[in-house]
Design a protein around this nucleic acid. Sequence first.
DNA 1: GTAATATATTCACTTTATTGAATATATATT
DNA 2: AATATATATTCAATAAAGTGAATATATTAC
Lengths: 148, 148
Amino acid sequence: MNKQVRQSKIREMLHLHEVGNQHDLIRLLEEAGIRVAQATLSRDCSELGIIRSKGLNGYRLALPEENPGNIIKGLVEVEVLSIQSNEAVVIIKTLPGRAHGVGSFLDQLKNSQILGTIAGDDTVLVIPVSVAQISQVISYIQENLSKN
Amino acid sequence: MNKQVRQSKIREMLHLHEVGNQHDLIRLLEEAGIRVAQATLSRDCSELGIIRSKGLNGYRLALPEENPGNIIKGLVEVEVLSIQSNEAVVIIKTLPGRAHGVGSFLDQLKNSQILGTIAGDDTVLVIPVSVAQISQVISYIQENLSKN
DNA sequence: GTAATATATTCACTTTATTGAATATATATT
DNA sequence: AATATATATTCAATAAAGTGAATATATTAC
């Protein structure tokens, strides 16, 4: 269970040094007192979204730039208080003043089963393309606006 | 691995219903298709910081009173990208779709030097009561919407 | 193209997390 | 206080995550 520590160290390493491949990273980590197999490192890179791209000094392992979408997803998960529905629409309750942001995030996902959203102050109304799709829309909203 | 789902549902339940004790919560969860033992629920409550407090209708399980204002302040600090101004107005740039939330937060602070705000998608315009107060308004915004 | 190098995956094993039944402790009611 | 009710903990079993060695696949170099 050094995983957290190790991955944190990997991030740090890639910020500080130019690392060309996983084997070099293994060596650097070993110098820092962390011994790890290449298989594990491969999985770490995958989980951290690290990719190997070619720069001026040859190849290097690079962390992904945090794109706004992922930041906002984190915000939305905090803002959403409950997700309810009847046969025709879904109602999302949010922290006060946060409905617009949640609705905007949902809009930007461009789910074809959602006809549109209307946001008030702390409530977002979601209209499905057809009432027949309501349960799928609920699932979709739960998956994308909640922590799980 | 239903733990995430279950704890999320518990949060929702406590927002929607008044729940007096863990046994009632067990029943509610069962109605929602989630069967769980009391021991597990006890651990969930502990992890979620849920406490049993006495209100008007007797006891109820309550999520820790996170003052919404403080939560939102944290969100706003992440959402605000820049604060700029000319002699007459202040422009706050935000993450895409987050301007309304930021403007709403600013409104709710009810600063008497601010005449009003208008929010677009990623921009909030702030109008001071008088252009003479612009520098104080800038300071106020910086203090309340930024981390430092 | 082939060889060399780099990364991903499979397999087997170990460690950790999750869970419910039973039980103990704590809290409320009278 | 005694009793009822609610919650926490222990124990044992199960499920899930993490790991390295070996191997397969993919990528780069020539």
